[in-house]
Amino acid sequence: MTTPRVLLLPGWQNSGPGHWQSRWAALHGFARVEQDDWLWPRRGDWMARLEETLLDGDGPALLVAHSLGCHLVAAWAGHSRHTARVAGALLVAPPDLERADMPPQVQTWAPMHRQPLPFASTAVLSANDPYCDASRGLQLAAGWDSEIVTLGAAGHVNADSGLGDWPEGIALLQALAARAGLTLGAAAA
């Protein structure tokens, strides 16, 4: 089995040190896709950075997106000619960007891309996500043709959710890798 590159795609304002994405980078050596502007994200700029990162590396990649990073994956997949470089995506806590109460910094990301993704994906949803009603999260995941995992009441599935290193998330990533015929290797075991 091939070992993929794992690319972390944080959402708006990046993921702080207590966030599971940051902990995974430290524990497992996963690479964070750094954006030039975390506070006023421009969809086109973020898509270009993801494209550059994927073209700079070898082998298949697994994308691990949180919040706005989920919409980055959907928007990028709808436009890129290089989607074959991605073996799968773990999409955690996608927000509903079309709600009237979303911050102005992310309103330019609407309308949301809802087309099926051209690679395996798992959407991880929370029953009480303050940025996405449960029914809307299910609609997004269905539009992306994602396998759906519901965590119950886990908030926005971030540092405030108290997940720590989130071993359950690593298990979901390992299952996604296996669906794509890949293995994460010893670092994430």
Score class of each variant (00 low, 15 high):
Asp129Gln: 05
Val106Tyr: 00
Gln139Arg: 12
Asp133His: 13
Gly152Ser: 09
Phe30Tyr: 15
Trp109Glu: 11
Gly143Thr: 04
Arg136Cys: 03
Gly152Asn: 14
Leu173Gly: 01
Leu138Gln: 09
Gly164Glu: 04
Thr3His: 03
Met47Lys: 10
Asn128Gln: 07
Ala188Ser: 01
Pro10His: 07
Gly155Lys: 03
Ala123Ser: 14
Pro103Phe: 07
Leu72Thr: 08
Ser135Cys: 08
Ala171Tyr: 05
Ser80Asp: 02
Leu55Lys: 07
Asp37Trp: 00
Pro17Val: 08
Gly57His: 06
Ala127Ser: 15
Leu68Asp: 04
Thr2Tyr: 06
Trp144Gly: 06
Ala100Glu: 13
Ala134Lys: 07
Glu168Pro: 11
Trp76Arg: 01
Gln107Ser: 15
Gly29Gln: 02
Ile170Met: 15
Ala142Asn: 06
Arg114Leu: 10
Glu51Arg: 05
Ala134Val: 03
Asn128Phe: 06
Arg32Lys: 13
Ala159Gly: 09
Leu163Val: 13
Ala189Ser: 13
Ser161Glu: 02
Asp165Pro: 05
Leu176Trp: 13
Gln174Asp: 04
Pro41Ile: 11
Gly11His: 06
Gly78Asn: 11
Trp24Ser: 04
Leu7Phe: 15
Pro116Ala: 15
Gly69His: 12
Ala180Met: 03
Leu54Lys: 11
Gln35Phe: 13
Val6His: 00
Trp24Asn: 01
Ser161His: 02
Arg49Ser: 13
Asp160Val: 00
Gly88Thr: 00
Gln174His: 13
Pro167Tyr: 01
Ala31Arg: 15
Ala186Ser: 12
